[in-house]
Amino acid sequence: MTVKLSSRTEGDTTVVVLEGEINSTTSGGLQAQLLPFVGEGSRLLIDLSGVSYVSSAGLRTLLIVHRRAQQLRTGVILVGLSEEVRFVMSATGFLDFFEIEDDLDAARERTGR
């Protein structure tokens, strides 16, 4: 199982779309790919609607990216969480750290304020 990454820029927001599973075998490479998108002044939006499972290591990767963004005084928004991913993140407390939106449109509305 792998995770595929594609990205595009929308104004001052970088949208990263992930597909696959984020687990211990994929998360190391994913972290290296994601961190360069974290930059000063640009917000990172990660679309997880194509992600079926995020393991413990995967959640840690997302939180590390979020922490790095915080250090640079910007943010990470997660969108498109499946019911199971959202449940796991909620039960384990990871959900508390992120900004979450249902989908891209809701996130655009928020960032477009």
């Binding site: 413990s56 039960a91 407390g93 990871f94």
Partner: peptide
């Protein structure tokens, strides 16, 4: 005792 025990995330759930 963890809703996430089947994913091995009981430590995070309990700490939360």
């Amino acid at each position: 005792y963890a809703a996430t025990g089947r994913f091995g995330m009981q430590a995070d759930e309990f700490k939360t």
